[in-house]
Protein backbone atom coordinates (compact mmCIF):
# COMPACT_ATOMS: atom_id res chain seq x y z
CA UNK A 1 0.00 0.00 0.00
CA UNK A 2 2.86 2.34 0.81
CA UNK A 3 4.41 1.56 -2.56
CA UNK A 4 1.11 2.06 -4.37
CA UNK A 5 0.51 5.42 -2.73
CA UNK A 6 4.03 6.49 -3.70
CA UNK A 7 3.43 5.39 -7.28
CA UNK A 8 0.15 7.27 -7.50
CA UNK A 9 2.08 10.39 -6.52
CA UNK A 10 4.53 9.94 -9.40
CA UNK A 11 3.63 12.02 -12.42
CA UNK A 12 5.25 10.91 -15.67
CA UNK A 13 8.51 12.70 -16.40
CA UNK A 14 10.38 13.47 -19.60
CA UNK A 15 7.35 13.08 -21.83
CA UNK A 16 7.84 16.26 -23.88
CA UNK A 17 9.81 16.75 -27.07
CA UNK A 18 11.02 14.07 -29.47
CA UNK A 19 12.56 10.81 -28.42
CA UNK A 20 14.36 8.24 -30.53
CA UNK A 21 17.39 5.96 -30.53
CA UNK A 22 20.55 5.81 -32.59
CA UNK A 23 22.23 2.45 -33.05
CA UNK A 24 25.90 2.25 -33.94
CA UNK A 25 28.49 -0.48 -33.44
CA UNK A 26 26.33 -2.49 -31.05
CA UNK A 27 25.20 0.40 -28.84
CA UNK A 28 21.60 1.65 -28.93
CA UNK A 29 21.78 5.18 -27.62
CA UNK A 30 18.69 7.15 -26.53
CA UNK A 31 18.32 10.71 -27.83
CA UNK A 32 15.90 13.25 -26.38
CA UNK A 33 15.32 16.51 -28.25
CA UNK A 34 13.47 18.94 -26.02
CA UNK A 35 12.87 22.63 -25.50
CA UNK A 36 12.07 25.18 -28.13
CA UNK A 37 11.98 23.04 -31.27
CA UNK A 38 10.95 26.10 -33.29
CA UNK A 39 14.29 27.68 -32.52
CA UNK A 40 16.93 27.80 -35.23
CA UNK A 41 19.53 27.00 -32.60
CA UNK A 42 20.13 23.36 -31.66
CA UNK A 43 22.46 22.63 -28.76
CA UNK A 44 23.86 19.09 -28.92
CA UNK A 45 25.13 18.06 -25.49
CA UNK A 46 27.86 15.63 -24.48
CA UNK A 47 27.55 14.28 -20.95
CA UNK A 48 30.27 13.60 -18.44
CA UNK A 49 31.52 10.62 -16.54
CA UNK A 50 32.41 8.84 -18.66
CA UNK A 51 29.46 6.65 -17.83
CA UNK A 52 26.93 9.22 -16.60
CA UNK A 53 23.84 10.20 -18.59
CA UNK A 54 22.75 13.06 -20.81
CA UNK A 55 19.34 12.60 -19.20
CA UNK A 56 20.78 14.19 -16.06
CA UNK A 57 21.23 17.63 -17.68
CA UNK A 58 17.51 18.47 -17.93
CA UNK A 59 17.10 17.74 -14.23
CA UNK A 60 19.03 20.94 -13.55
CA UNK A 61 17.39 24.35 -13.62
CA UNK A 62 20.15 25.64 -15.88
CA UNK A 63 19.18 23.36 -18.75
CA UNK A 64 15.46 23.69 -18.10
CA UNK A 65 15.85 27.42 -18.69
CA UNK A 66 18.01 26.99 -21.78
CA UNK A 67 15.18 24.90 -23.23
CA UNK A 68 12.93 27.96 -23.15
CA UNK A 69 14.96 29.54 -25.95
CA UNK A 70 16.73 26.70 -27.70
CA UNK A 71 16.26 23.13 -28.86
CA UNK A 72 18.49 20.97 -26.68
CA UNK A 73 19.65 17.48 -27.64
CA UNK A 74 20.38 15.11 -24.77
CA UNK A 75 21.74 11.64 -25.44
CA UNK A 76 23.44 8.86 -23.52
CA UNK A 77 26.77 7.59 -24.79
CA UNK A 78 27.60 3.90 -25.20
CA UNK A 79 27.86 1.98 -21.92
CA UNK A 80 26.27 5.00 -20.24
CA UNK A 81 22.94 6.04 -18.78
CA UNK A 82 20.00 4.34 -20.48
CA UNK A 83 22.06 3.28 -23.48
CA UNK A 84 21.02 -0.25 -24.51
CA UNK A 85 22.43 -3.02 -26.69
CA UNK A 86 25.44 -5.16 -26.13
CA UNK A 87 28.43 -3.39 -27.67
CA UNK A 88 31.84 -4.97 -27.50
CA UNK A 89 34.21 -3.54 -24.87
CA UNK A 90 36.57 -3.11 -27.83
CA UNK A 91 34.42 -0.13 -28.82
CA UNK A 92 35.44 1.80 -25.73
CA UNK A 93 37.77 4.00 -27.73
CA UNK A 94 37.89 7.73 -28.27
CA UNK A 95 37.35 7.11 -32.00
CA UNK A 96 34.09 5.27 -31.27
CA UNK A 97 32.80 8.00 -28.98
CA UNK A 98 33.59 10.57 -31.68
CA UNK A 99 31.86 8.38 -34.29
CA UNK A 100 28.82 8.00 -32.01
CA UNK A 101 28.65 11.78 -31.70
CA UNK A 102 28.80 11.99 -35.50
CA UNK A 103 25.92 9.51 -35.73
CA UNK A 104 23.76 11.63 -33.42
CA UNK A 105 24.72 14.79 -35.31
CA UNK A 106 23.81 13.14 -38.64
CA UNK A 107 20.37 12.17 -37.37
CA UNK A 108 19.72 15.64 -35.95
CA UNK A 109 20.79 17.27 -39.19
CA UNK A 110 18.64 14.95 -41.29
CA UNK A 111 15.59 14.90 -39.04
CA UNK A 112 15.41 18.64 -38.31
CA UNK A 113 17.09 20.11 -41.37
CA UNK A 114 19.75 21.60 -39.12
CA UNK A 115 23.10 22.43 -40.66
CA UNK A 116 25.20 24.32 -38.12
CA UNK A 117 24.69 23.70 -34.41
CA UNK A 118 26.09 24.52 -30.98
CA UNK A 119 28.07 21.75 -29.28
CA UNK A 120 28.19 21.65 -25.49
CA UNK A 121 30.33 19.26 -23.45
CA UNK A 122 30.51 18.91 -19.69
CA UNK A 123 33.47 17.35 -17.86
CA UNK A 124 34.39 14.20 -19.82
CA UNK A 125 31.90 15.46 -22.41
CA UNK A 126 34.04 18.60 -22.61
CA UNK A 127 37.06 16.45 -23.45
CA UNK A 128 35.02 14.56 -26.04
CA UNK A 129 33.86 17.81 -27.61
CA UNK A 130 37.45 18.95 -28.08
CA UNK A 131 38.25 15.59 -29.69
CA UNK A 132 35.17 16.01 -31.90
CA UNK A 133 36.37 19.42 -33.07
CA UNK A 134 39.59 17.71 -34.20
CA UNK A 135 38.26 14.52 -35.78
CA UNK A 136 34.46 14.63 -36.06
CA UNK A 137 33.11 14.16 -39.55
CA UNK A 138 30.75 17.12 -39.06
CA UNK A 139 33.19 19.29 -37.09
CA UNK A 140 32.83 21.96 -39.76
CA UNK A 141 29.15 22.31 -38.83
CA UNK A 142 29.89 23.22 -35.20
CA UNK A 143 29.03 26.93 -35.10
CA UNK A 144 30.49 27.24 -31.61
CA UNK A 145 31.60 24.97 -28.80
CA UNK A 146 30.98 25.32 -25.08
CA UNK A 147 33.58 23.43 -23.07
CA UNK A 148 32.21 23.26 -19.54
CA UNK A 149 34.87 21.93 -17.17
CA UNK A 150 36.38 19.69 -19.81
CA UNK A 151 40.05 19.56 -20.57
CA UNK A 152 42.51 18.75 -23.32
CA UNK A 153 44.83 16.87 -20.94
CA UNK A 154 43.44 14.52 -18.30
CA UNK A 155 46.81 13.55 -16.75
CA UNK A 156 47.43 17.29 -16.26
CA UNK A 157 43.96 17.70 -14.76
CA UNK A 158 44.39 14.85 -12.33
CA UNK A 159 47.78 16.16 -11.21
CA UNK A 160 46.24 19.59 -10.65
CA UNK A 161 43.35 17.97 -8.81
CA UNK A 162 45.82 16.19 -6.55
CA UNK A 163 47.49 19.53 -5.84
CA UNK A 164 44.06 21.05 -5.15
CA UNK A 165 43.04 18.56 -2.50
CA UNK A 166 46.25 18.18 -0.50
CA UNK A 167 46.16 21.51 1.38
CA UNK A 168 42.48 20.92 2.05
CA UNK A 169 43.27 17.57 3.64
CA UNK A 170 45.87 19.18 5.90
CA UNK A 171 43.39 21.91 6.84
CA UNK A 172 40.64 19.39 7.68
CA UNK A 173 43.04 17.46 9.91
CA UNK A 174 44.30 20.65 11.57
CA UNK A 175 40.70 21.77 12.19
CA UNK A 176 39.81 18.33 13.57
CA UNK A 177 37.14 17.82 10.90
CA UNK A 178 36.60 14.08 10.49
CA UNK A 179 40.30 13.49 11.24
CA UNK A 180 40.16 9.71 10.81
CA UNK A 181 38.70 9.98 7.29
CA UNK A 182 41.08 12.70 6.17
CA UNK A 183 44.08 10.91 7.70
CA UNK A 184 43.16 7.93 5.53
CA UNK A 185 43.04 10.31 2.57
CA UNK A 186 46.50 11.64 3.41
CA UNK A 187 47.82 8.06 3.65
CA UNK A 188 46.27 7.31 0.27
CA UNK A 189 48.00 10.22 -1.43
CA UNK A 190 51.30 9.44 0.33
CA UNK A 191 51.07 5.90 -1.04
CA UNK A 192 50.02 7.09 -4.52
CA UNK A 193 52.30 9.88 -5.72
CA UNK A 194 50.69 9.53 -9.16
CA UNK A 195 46.90 9.22 -9.34
CA UNK A 196 45.10 8.04 -12.46
CA UNK A 197 41.76 9.53 -13.53
CA UNK A 198 40.29 6.03 -13.41
CA UNK A 199 41.12 5.66 -9.71
CA UNK A 200 37.76 6.04 -7.94
CA UNK A 201 39.34 6.83 -4.55
CA UNK A 202 40.60 10.20 -5.74
CA UNK A 203 37.21 11.22 -7.11
CA UNK A 204 35.61 10.21 -3.85
CA UNK A 205 37.99 12.35 -1.79
CA UNK A 206 37.53 15.32 -4.12
CA UNK A 207 33.78 14.96 -3.79
CA UNK A 208 34.02 14.89 0.01
CA UNK A 209 36.10 18.07 -0.11
CA UNK A 210 33.46 19.91 -2.15
CA UNK A 211 35.32 19.70 -5.43
CA UNK A 212 32.22 18.76 -7.41
CA UNK A 213 29.67 20.95 -5.63
CA UNK A 214 30.95 24.01 -3.82
CA UNK A 215 27.89 24.24 -1.59
CA UNK A 216 25.86 21.05 -1.55
CA UNK A 217 23.14 22.72 0.51
CA UNK A 218 22.27 24.71 -2.63
CA UNK A 219 21.89 21.54 -4.67
CA UNK A 220 18.36 20.28 -5.13
CA UNK A 221 18.40 16.49 -5.37
CA UNK A 222 16.55 15.00 -8.36
CA UNK A 223 13.06 13.53 -7.86
CA UNK A 224 14.23 9.97 -7.40
CA UNK A 225 10.80 8.33 -7.18
CA UNK A 226 9.55 9.88 -10.40
CA UNK A 227 12.80 9.04 -12.16
CA UNK A 228 12.67 5.43 -11.03
CA UNK A 229 8.99 4.73 -11.67
CA UNK A 230 7.71 7.24 -14.21
CA UNK A 231 10.48 8.25 -16.60
CA UNK A 232 12.73 6.66 -19.25
CA UNK A 233 15.27 6.04 -16.48
CA UNK A 234 15.92 2.41 -15.65
CA UNK A 235 18.29 0.41 -13.50
CA UNK A 236 20.62 0.71 -16.48
CA UNK A 237 21.50 4.19 -15.28
CA UNK A 238 22.65 2.97 -11.88
CA UNK A 239 24.37 -0.12 -13.23
CA UNK A 240 26.21 1.81 -15.92
CA UNK A 241 27.44 4.37 -13.43
CA UNK A 242 28.78 1.59 -11.25
CA UNK A 243 30.02 -1.00 -13.70
CA UNK A 244 30.51 0.52 -17.14
CA UNK A 245 32.08 3.59 -15.61
CA UNK A 246 34.97 1.42 -14.53
CA UNK A 247 35.49 0.32 -18.13
CA UNK A 248 34.91 3.62 -19.84
CA UNK A 249 36.76 5.90 -17.47
CA UNK A 250 40.05 4.25 -18.43
CA UNK A 251 39.72 6.36 -21.59
CA UNK A 252 40.84 9.29 -19.50
CA UNK A 253 44.13 7.84 -18.34
CA UNK A 254 45.99 8.78 -21.51
CA UNK A 255 43.68 11.47 -22.89
CA UNK A 256 46.00 14.24 -24.09
CA UNK A 257 45.22 16.53 -27.06
CA UNK A 258 47.92 19.09 -26.23
CA UNK A 259 49.79 18.74 -29.51
CA UNK A 260 46.66 19.27 -31.61
CA UNK A 261 44.83 22.03 -29.74
CA UNK A 262 46.15 24.66 -32.16
CA UNK A 263 44.10 23.02 -34.91
CA UNK A 264 40.86 24.07 -33.22
CA UNK A 265 39.70 27.31 -34.78
CA UNK A 266 35.97 27.00 -34.00
CA UNK A 267 34.70 29.65 -31.55
CA UNK A 268 34.99 28.15 -28.06
CA UNK A 269 33.78 29.17 -24.62
CA UNK A 270 35.83 27.52 -21.87
CA UNK A 271 33.76 27.70 -18.72
CA UNK A 272 34.26 26.41 -15.21
CA UNK A 273 34.31 27.12 -11.50
CA UNK A 274 37.13 28.58 -9.48
CA UNK A 275 36.40 25.98 -6.80
CA UNK A 276 36.41 23.00 -9.16
CA UNK A 277 38.46 20.29 -7.51
CA UNK A 278 38.38 17.70 -10.29
CA UNK A 279 39.24 20.03 -13.19
CA UNK A 280 40.84 22.97 -11.37
CA UNK A 281 40.81 26.38 -13.09
CA UNK A 282 44.53 26.29 -13.86
CA UNK A 283 43.79 23.44 -16.28
CA UNK A 284 40.97 25.32 -18.01
CA UNK A 285 43.26 28.33 -18.39
CA UNK A 286 45.71 26.14 -20.27
CA UNK A 287 42.93 24.61 -22.40
CA UNK A 288 41.87 28.13 -23.32
CA UNK A 289 45.42 29.27 -24.07
CA UNK A 290 46.14 26.33 -26.37
CA UNK A 291 43.05 26.77 -28.55
CA UNK A 292 43.86 27.83 -32.10
CA UNK A 293 40.79 30.05 -32.38
CA UNK A 294 41.53 33.78 -32.67
CA UNK A 295 41.24 35.77 -29.44
CA UNK A 296 37.97 37.31 -30.61
CA UNK A 297 36.44 33.85 -31.02
CA UNK A 298 37.44 32.32 -27.72
CA UNK A 299 36.36 33.13 -24.21
CA UNK A 300 37.36 32.00 -20.73
CA UNK A 301 34.79 32.23 -17.96
CA UNK A 302 35.65 31.11 -14.43
CA UNK A 303 33.12 31.77 -11.68
CA UNK A 304 33.77 32.14 -7.92
CA UNK A 305 31.97 29.86 -5.46
CA UNK A 306 31.29 27.36 -8.23
CA UNK A 307 32.85 23.93 -8.52
CA UNK A 308 32.16 21.47 -11.35
CA UNK A 309 28.52 21.96 -12.37
CA UNK A 310 27.38 25.54 -12.86
CA UNK A 311 24.10 24.42 -14.47
CA UNK A 312 23.06 22.95 -11.11
CA UNK A 313 25.03 25.22 -8.76
CA UNK A 314 24.14 28.63 -10.18
CA UNK A 315 21.51 28.37 -12.94
CA UNK A 316 21.23 32.16 -13.37
CA UNK A 317 24.92 32.55 -14.09
CA UNK A 318 24.95 29.45 -16.30
CA UNK A 319 22.09 30.62 -18.49
CA UNK A 320 23.52 34.14 -18.79
CA UNK A 321 27.01 32.98 -19.80
CA UNK A 322 25.88 30.26 -22.18
CA UNK A 323 23.13 32.37 -23.80
CA UNK A 324 25.43 35.36 -24.33
CA UNK A 325 27.98 33.13 -26.05
CA UNK A 326 25.35 31.43 -28.18
CA UNK A 327 23.84 34.73 -29.28
CA UNK A 328 27.29 35.87 -30.40
CA UNK A 329 27.94 32.76 -32.47
CA UNK A 330 24.54 31.23 -33.25
CA UNK A 331 24.24 29.83 -36.77
Amino acid sequence: MILLSLLIGCGPMMTEGDYFHVERAGAIMPVWVNGNLDSDVFIITLHGGPGDAGHEFPLSEGFQRLEEDYAVVYWDQRFSGMSQGDPSPDTITLADFVADTDAVVSVIQEKYGVEAFILYGHSWGGDLGLAYLLDGEHRGDVAAYIDHAGTHDEPLAIAASREWIQPKIEQYIADDIDPEFWSQARDYYDANPVVLPSDPAHGSYVSSAGGYFYDETQYEPPPMLELAFASPFSMSFYQNVGRSLKLVIALLDDFDLTDRMGEITTPVLVHGGLEDGIVPPVVLEETYALLGAPEADKELSLLPEIAHSTHAEDPDAFVAIVSDFIELHAP
Binding site: F20, I28, Q84, D86, E110, E137
Partner: peptide, 26 residues
Protein backbone atom coordinates in the same frame (compact mmCIF):
# COMPACT_ATOMS: atom_id res chain seq x y z
CA UNK B 1 13.10 -6.26 -26.51
CA UNK B 2 12.48 -3.35 -28.88
CA UNK B 3 13.52 0.17 -28.06
CA UNK B 4 10.57 2.53 -27.80
CA UNK B 5 10.39 5.04 -30.63
CA UNK B 6 12.16 5.42 -33.94
CA UNK B 7 15.55 3.81 -34.24
CA UNK B 8 18.19 5.16 -36.58
CA UNK B 9 20.74 2.54 -37.46
CA UNK B 10 24.18 3.58 -38.63
CA UNK B 11 24.90 0.89 -41.21
CA UNK B 12 28.22 2.44 -42.17
CA UNK B 13 29.75 5.90 -42.30
CA UNK B 14 27.54 6.97 -45.19
CA UNK B 15 24.34 5.03 -44.56
CA UNK B 16 21.68 5.74 -41.98
CA UNK B 17 18.57 3.57 -41.88
CA UNK B 18 15.33 4.29 -40.07
CA UNK B 19 13.89 1.15 -38.54
CA UNK B 20 10.22 0.65 -37.82
CA UNK B 21 9.04 0.57 -34.24
CA UNK B 22 8.87 -3.21 -33.87
CA UNK B 23 11.45 -4.11 -36.48
CA UNK B 24 14.41 -6.16 -35.36
CA UNK B 25 14.84 -5.83 -31.65
CA UNK B 26 17.21 -7.65 -29.36
Amino acid sequence: TWVDGDEYWVVDEDTLELRGKYEGGS
